[in-house]
Design a protein around this nucleic acid. Structure first.
Length: 195
DNA sequence: AATCTCTACAACCGCATACCC
DNA sequence: TGGGTATGCGGTTGTAGAGAT
């Protein structure tokens, strides 16, 4: 990630540290642009690892743990930003049914996605759906519903290439708005599998 | 326009394991 | 081999922003 990207994406929100910036105290809360830049530049020159030492040498008043997390989840150049694609969502569904909450394992199969991102996706989107349908998110019934929806989504995307006349996907017709918002799909598309 | 509520996600925490001396 | 430290992982919390009232 370039410094410019950081400039545009990093919040310059108010820091959560106390107003009297005591040099001996470790900072917590949201990272500032300045901190991101220090971390990126330091790792660019010296590489990752030895996080506690790195934090000190980079001049960051953060724990090594905090630096590692910031780098891995946000600053690392190959971290992919933006919504998960239906294909990625399907993969997560499959892998989660195999391994459960082994987020780091699952993340290894989705290049550019972090365990934190996948975990957040599962908790905020998938579990929300499960609650709505009043089924366990780990149940096969629920997985079938979601799989069906995502398959339809992927298929509709494919079909759009060759035709605008696409039959309705019936599986989700009852809950198009809910599913669409949860899985980042425009409602009209989700409801009809066409556009 | 002000306030409230909800959602998404960044960041923290505690614990387990790996590593090093 | 045992103790201390570093790292990685999964669960949880805090916050900003968007939308609703």
């Amino acid at each position: 990630m370039s410094v410019d990207t950081i400039m545009s994406s990093t919040s310059l929100k108010t820091s959560m540290t106390s107003s009297k910036e005591d040099d001996s105290e470790l900072r917590r809360g949201p990272w500032t642009l300045e901190e991101d830049t220090l971390l990126v530049h330091y790792i660019g020159r010296h590489g990752e690892g030895r996080w506690n030492l790195l934090a000190k040498r980079a001049g960051l008043r953060r724990t090594g743990k905090s630096c590692r997390l910031r780098w891995l989840n946000y600053l690392k150049p190959d971290v992919k930003r933006g919504n998960l694609t239906p294909q990625e969502q399907l993969l997560i569904l499959d892998l989660h049914s195999k391994w459960g909450n082994r987020w780091s394992n699952i993340a290894r199969h989705l290049p550019g996605r972090t365990d934190n991102e996948i975990k957040n996706y599962w908790r905020t989107r998938v579990q929300k759906q499960a609650r709505h349908f009043k089924i366990d998110a780990n149940s096969t019934a629920f997985q079938d519903i979601i799989r069906c929806f995502l398959d339809a989504k992927i298929a509709s995307k494919d079909r759009r290439i060759i035709s605008h006349a696409i039959p309705k996907a019936t599986s989700f017709s009852a809950e198009p708005q809910l599913c669409s918002s949860a899985f980042n799909v425009p409602t009209s598309t989700a409801a009809t599998s066409s556009s």
